[in-house]
Simulated assay, not measured.
Amino acid sequence: MVAIAGLCAGIGAGVGFWIARGAESSAPLSPPPSHTGSGAPLGSEIAGIRAPAAIPYVDYEDVPKPAYYADAGRPMHERMEALVLDLQDRLIEALETLEPSRRFIRDRWEREDGKGYGISCVLQDGEVFEKAGVNVSVIEGTLTAGQLRSMRERNAQTAQKLSATEEYEFRVAGVSVVVHPRNPYAPTAHKNYRRFEVYRKGATESGPVMAWFGGGADLTPAYLFAEDASHFHQTLKHACDAHDTKYYPQFKAWCDRYFANTHRGETRGIGGIFFDDLEDKSPEELFRFVYDAGSSFISAYVPIVARRMLMPYTQRERNWQLIRRGHYAEFNLVYDRGTKFGLMTPGARIESILMSLPLTARWEYMNRPEPGSPEDALLQAVRTTTNWAAA
């Protein structure tokens, strides 16, 4: 379920991507047992976890390409739908390889007007993942005058191609991911990829008058490990370089600008890649780039969690993690365009909009880490930009 206003504002970073009134096909979810207040010693969950011998789909380049990958005779919106569903399934399988106590709950919904569906998959209160969401949305509809105006104001190319007086329809398919691990040493991560197509009213059979891809992935650690940051960025750079060596530096800089808590003078995390309105190559070339970029997320992120999820931690690390999660929530609620537009949309599906927020967070008055401490090292990293791919 897509927040149309949010999408038209160029959303990709936020979970406002997942909102539109829909009829649920599943029963209300019963809450799982909570670790909070259970009386178990802090970090005791580590004793019951074993690192997996292998993680599926890490070597995405060696996996045979699915049929939709090269099926140029199939409409692009159908191929994008197949891609986001595929990315959802592969990431869920990889994440569940690490999690011993929970499985993702699949919550499928349909739009009341019959113009689309979504699948919200959430794992909550696990031993490894405190909260993880992997959502897909595939919908179509009519652009409102306000949504069209927002699109034209955002992008000069869009303004040149779309008339302010015509009526347009749209199709969109996307996948949005946010993962909050339990261990403070394991970083939070976000991924979003989507394709948006615009058609003249009543003329979808003639093809889109314009279409673009958007998305990206970024990493938000509470504790900085340079090798993790380098691995994440180098993996994304490799996926970008296979298609255009200009992509990674351009999209990394864009990510650093967008995911910023300006009021704090810091970025949300240590970045990654982010892009929107991408239409600089043929749809076929861009589709293959998005396939590789979206697939590389498992290789970039899941092995980092596997490496950090068994590290012992104390209340000090847990408190710092919760403080950093508070900053994460600040960005999503204050700056993220998708979340803001989604919350203003009548009939919005609030549960899906706020899926990106952590299960727990903390705000301490005047929290100032000791200079030279591991917590201070993280602060220094998010108050500047680093070429992690070269580190």
Rank of each mutant, 00 (worst) to 15 (best):
G126Q: 01
R108W: 15
K131M: 15
I105R: 10
W109A: 15
Q124N: 14
D107K: 08
I105F: 11
V136G: 11
G116P: 15
G126A: 06
N135F: 14
L123G: 10
V138S: 04
F104N: 05
E112M: 06
D125V: 11
C121L: 09
G126R: 00
L98T: 14
F104G: 04
E96R: 00
E130H: 04
I139R: 00
E96L: 07
G118Y: 05
V138G: 04
G114F: 08
G118E: 14
G114P: 12
Q124P: 09
F104A: 04
K115N: 05
E110G: 12
L123K: 07
I105W: 13
R111W: 07
D113F: 09
V128A: 10
S120F: 12
D113C: 03
E99Q: 07
R102H: 01
K131Y: 12
E99C: 02
I105L: 12
E99K: 01
R111I: 12
S120H: 05
V128G: 11
D107P: 01
D113M: 01
D107R: 02
D125P: 07
G126E: 00
R111G: 11
Q124E: 14
D113A: 06
L123M: 09
E140V: 00
L123W: 00
G126L: 04
E96S: 07
W109C: 14
G126N: 04
K115E: 05
D107Y: 03
S101N: 02
R102C: 02
E99L: 06
R111S: 09
D125H: 03
R103P: 03
G141D: 00
E130D: 13
E140K: 00
E127Q: 15
F129N: 01
R108C: 15
C121N: 13
E96D: 10
I139D: 06
D107Q: 13
C121E: 00
E110Y: 11
R102F: 00
G118M: 09
L98Y: 07
L98H: 09
